[in-house]
Computed example of a mutant assay.
Amino acid sequence: MIVATRTSTRQARALPPLVAIVGPTAVGKTATAIRLALDIDGEVVSADSRYLYRGMDIGTAKPTVAEMRGVPHHLIDVVDPTEDYSLALYQHDAYQAIADITARGRVPILAGGTPLYINAVLEGWRIPEVPPDPAFREEMEQVARERGPEHLHQRLAAVDPAAAARIPATNVRRVIRALEIYHHTGRPMTELEGKSPPPYRVLIVGLTLPREELYRRIDRRVDEQIAAGLVDEVRGLLEAGVPPDAPAMSAIGYGEIVAYLQGETTLPEAIERIRYNTHRYARHQTTWLRRMRGVHWFDPREPGWYERLLTLVRTFLAGNETDLNSADVD
């Protein structure tokens, strides 16, 4: 897929390139991005919301220094688990990283599976820049606890019906964010939003596996995370003062272990819950990916898949967009 402003073909080719690698969790995006970066003189910009947090390494399957193989990575370990990090801030930081990489004459590779992050960058979302208001959020959370999420959702429907129509009442965090934006601007969140194509030409490549194989990889990774010390990692975060209800701790693998450490479940039950929740998240990602247009898909099980992917990327970087279909024979 080539994303560019609606200019002449010549002007579009003058735009700097951005390669995006997408796919469900455990499909191999990180390793592929690193391998590709080594082959095309690139740097990786993470689009995984879990990679942002320092000290959350095992449960997020964050690449180690050895696994990075010297490839510079951006937007990894940028905030503490107790800090807020908004979508607007991610988009700003991602655009800055992409610009810096391009200025050095290297190729930015956006890699990850967080749908909001990917879309915010590739579609150029206009995101209301309203900073978090802890006092307002606590007030709204108290309302949700005392009167129920539906009451909070009704408040949103009264000031921003379009947002209420797309945000379920059960997603209290997003309901509060929409109310927070209205509270500070006096305007509905949906009125402030929009899209402005970013100043890149974009190639999107996707990795895909049959569901059964993906689930096997997920389950194997969960077992490896437990063996690597996930329980101790979560215990250490709690002992360092990270609240168990901090947004970062809602990441899959952390909330389940918190429940175990608090005596609410057994370790085998927590592990099974991690597997189940990761399977569900992979299905959610797959549903989102099916809606993405112009993705060039590759199955990592097939012989020669990476060589075909590399040929496609090199064709794109050479500016031969008309030859992309012939280069992509997957």
Results as ranks from 00 to 15, higher is better:
residue 1 M to A: 14
residue 5 T to L: 13
residue 7 T to C: 08
residue 9 T to E: 12
residue 20 A to S: 15
residue 24 P to T: 15
residue 25 T to L: 02
residue 27 V to T: 12
residue 29 K to L: 02
residue 36 L to F: 03
residue 40 I to D: 02
residue 41 D to E: 09
residue 43 E to H: 11
residue 53 Y to Q: 11
residue 54 R to F: 05
residue 55 G to S: 06
residue 61 A to D: 12
residue 62 K to E: 01
residue 67 E to K: 09
residue 69 R to L: 10
residue 73 H to L: 05
residue 80 D to F: 05
residue 86 S to D: 05
residue 87 L to N: 08
residue 89 L to V: 12
residue 90 Y to T: 10
residue 92 H to W: 11
residue 94 A to Y: 02
residue 99 A to N: 10
residue 99 A to Q: 13
residue 104 R to G: 12
residue 105 G to D: 03
residue 106 R to M: 04
residue 111 A to D: 07
residue 116 L to H: 05
residue 116 L to P: 00
residue 117 Y to L: 14
residue 118 I to C: 02
residue 119 N to I: 10
residue 120 A to N: 01
residue 122 L to W: 03
residue 125 W to M: 04
residue 126 R to K: 05
residue 127 I to K: 00
residue 127 I to D: 04
residue 129 E to M: 09
residue 136 F to D: 00
residue 136 F to S: 02
residue 138 E to K: 14
residue 141 E to F: 15
residue 143 V to E: 10
residue 144 A to W: 09
residue 146 E to G: 02
residue 147 R to L: 10
residue 152 L to I: 05
residue 158 A to T: 08
residue 159 V to G: 04
residue 160 D to V: 00
residue 166 R to K: 15
residue 186 G to Q: 10
residue 193 E to Q: 15
residue 196 S to E: 14
residue 198 P to Y: 13
residue 198 P to T: 12
residue 199 P to E: 14
residue 202 V to E: 00
residue 202 V to F: 10
residue 203 L to A: 08
residue 204 I to D: 01
residue 205 V to D: 03
residue 208 T to N: 13
residue 210 P to C: 10
residue 210 P to I: 09
residue 213 E to S: 08
residue 213 E to W: 04
residue 217 R to S: 00
residue 217 R to V: 00
residue 225 Q to G: 01
residue 225 Q to H: 13
residue 225 Q to F: 05
residue 225 Q to C: 04
residue 227 A to D: 10
residue 231 V to C: 07
residue 235 R to N: 09
residue 238 L to C: 06
residue 239 E to S: 13
residue 239 E to R: 15
residue 241 G to T: 03
residue 241 G to N: 12
residue 242 V to E: 01
residue 244 P to D: 11
residue 245 D to P: 07
residue 245 D to I: 02
residue 245 D to E: 14
residue 248 A to N: 05
residue 251 A to W: 08
residue 252 I to K: 14
residue 255 G to D: 03
residue 260 Y to P: 00
residue 261 L to T: 06
residue 261 L to F: 09
residue 264 E to C: 03
residue 265 T to C: 09
residue 266 T to N: 03
residue 271 I to L: 02
residue 273 R to P: 01
residue 277 N to M: 12
residue 280 R to T: 15
residue 281 Y to F: 12
residue 281 Y to N: 09
residue 284 H to A: 13
residue 285 Q to K: 07
residue 285 Q to L: 03
residue 285 Q to P: 07
residue 286 T to H: 14
residue 291 R to M: 13
residue 295 V to E: 01
residue 296 H to Q: 11
residue 297 W to T: 04
residue 298 F to Y: 15
residue 298 F to H: 08
residue 299 D to R: 07
residue 299 D to H: 11
residue 301 R to H: 04
residue 303 P to L: 03
residue 306 Y to I: 02
residue 306 Y to E: 13
residue 307 E to T: 14
residue 307 E to R: 15
residue 311 T to P: 01
residue 314 R to C: 14
residue 320 N to P: 01
residue 328 D to L: 13
residue 328 D to N: 14
residue 330 D to C: 11
residue 330 D to L: 05
